[in-house]
Each structure stands twice: as structure tokens, then as C-alpha cells.
Amino acid sequence: MSERAAVAAFRRSLGLDSLIDVHTHFMPERLLAKVWAYFDAAGPLVGRRWPIAYRAAEKERLDVLRGFGVSAFTSMLYPHKPGMARSLNDWAAEFAARTPDCLHTATFFAEPGAGQDVRRALGQGARVFKCHLQVGGFDPNDPLLDEVWGLLAETGVPVVTHCGSGPVPAAFTGPGPIAALLARHPRLRLVVAHLGMPEYEEFLGLAERFGRVMLDTTMAFTDFSESAAPFPRAALPRLADLGDRVLLGTDFPNIPYAYPDALHALERTGLGPAWLRAVCHDNAARLFAL
């Protein structure tokens, strides 16, 4: 069975016409090439062999995603140093303008003017932000970000945040910095990427404490991730209880396996079709008023 047919069969089994994927990567071609080179070299933040499954030109990647029946997706992009965020946001605004099915995505870095960058991106129409604490290497509680978090909490715009310590820990990953952040901004609509891998239970606890915290499923439950950071099966009932706040994410195109594998991995949790329908479509449709 082809990948497209496999995804179509998955959708049919749930009665879904389409999927919504909140964690996909589109970025300027030169930057994406550097990201792929980093994965190819199994850089320090990767830590293992990681072949890119969907290495192709932008149009082909869009065609593949749409061919899977993904009706809305993001252009997750992130700076690794100061001075990048604004130009990335300008690129993302242009990409969203020519790609109507993309949820206009923006980013920020802990630097002077971060609040202005976010305010400007919101003015351009950003609907979701990406924050990568592992790559950025900054503390989410840095005072330079006070205005950023305040704006995002006030507007309710989601911020998909790589804050877990997978695949390798960094200075400010883990539940501690995020717990401190949420204590100051309890209304922040923070989406914990990768279910908080590998600190799954701690991030589930934060979602249970803070009613606007959500989680995305990026790479979770796949054979690739389970071999290094298995999800504790005793915690599945807690994930089921948070079923209205879990979103489908995949990391397309930067995944080392086929797209259907991510969907079948969710199916294998045994959490059932109603949970899968909510995760793969309905929760994001409600969040983004689609």
C-alpha cells in the first residue's frame, strides 16, 4: 500500500475527511538545508542517526502533505541566535500569504526587542508561534521575554514549545523552567511539543494543573522514539483524560520514517477512535477556528 493510501485508510477508519498537523516545518531553503545537514551529521542536539524521510523541494513537500489529506499545517521555524527572528517572521508571513492552508507561524528569541518582534508578527497575522528552547539555548524566564509571554497570554495565540529534554537535554529544557513560566503566566496557551519527551509524566502534570496547556504528539509512540524514550504505559489514562487538549504533530518533513508510521503509532496506544478523531482534527479545528 502506498503512503497516501495508508493515510487515506487511517482517515476513513476515523470518519475524517482531513487531518490538521500543528507541527510541520517550512522555512527558507538555505536555512532548511543547514538544518538537514545538521541532522545528516547527527549533531550534538540530535545524538543519533536521523535520515530525513521527505527531503524534497518545497512544492513537492507541499504536494505530499496535501496528498495525505492534511488540510491545515504550520511552518515551524526557529532562530538559533539573536538577530534572526524578524527576518524569519517576514519569510513566514510571505509563505502563509502564498500558502492558504498554512497556519501563519512566527517565532522569537530571547533578545532585546523580542516583544517588538512578536507584536509585529501578530500584526502581520501570526496565528501560532514556535519556541525552541533546545536549539535557542535560552531560559524561557529570561526577563527579555516578559513582554513576549504577556502578549501571547493576553491574545491567546498558541506557542508550540520544544521544552522537553529529548532527544538530548539542554541548559533550559525540562519541566522546571516551564513550571516557573506558567506560574507567572497561567493563561498562556502553551503547546508542549513531543508530549514533553522524555519527561512525559511531568509535562502531563503541568497540563493537568494549567487548563490552557496543550500537548502535541510529534514523534511520540513511534518505534524510533520508543527505542530511546518510551512513553510510560501507566500514564496512558492521563493522556486519555486530556484528550481535548492533545494535537497531532509529526515534524514533517524532518522525520526518519514514513508519515503513516506516526499515525499508526497513535492508533497503537489503544486510546480509541474518539480520542484519535479529536487529536488528529477536531481539537486543532476548534483551537484555530477552522
Rank of each mutant, 00 (worst) to 15 (best):
G205E: 13
H281I: 00
T269I: 06
T105W: 05
G150L: 00
A8S: 11
Q134G: 14
G123D: 10
S165F: 08
A234C: 12
G150I: 00
L133W: 08
F39D: 03
S2P: 14
E58L: 14
A170T: 13
A289T: 10
A289P: 00
A41G: 12
L152D: 12
Y257L: 05
D216G: 06
F172S: 04
Q124G: 15
F68I: 02
A284R: 00
G205T: 09
F288K: 05
A110E: 04
A278Q: 13
R212M: 00
L271R: 07
P253N: 10
G15F: 10
K34T: 07
L45E: 12
R277F: 08
T24M: 02
F203N: 04
V46S: 04
L16C: 09
Y200F: 15
K34H: 06
A106P: 08
A285P: 06
F26Q: 07
L32Q: 15
L236N: 08
G150R: 12
L263E: 03
M219P: 00
Y54F: 13
D251V: 05
A5Q: 12
D261C: 12
D17Q: 15
L188G: 02
A93T: 14
R98I: 03
M214D: 01
A170P: 00
W36L: 14
V157E: 01
A278T: 07
H185R: 07
D244N: 14
P44C: 08
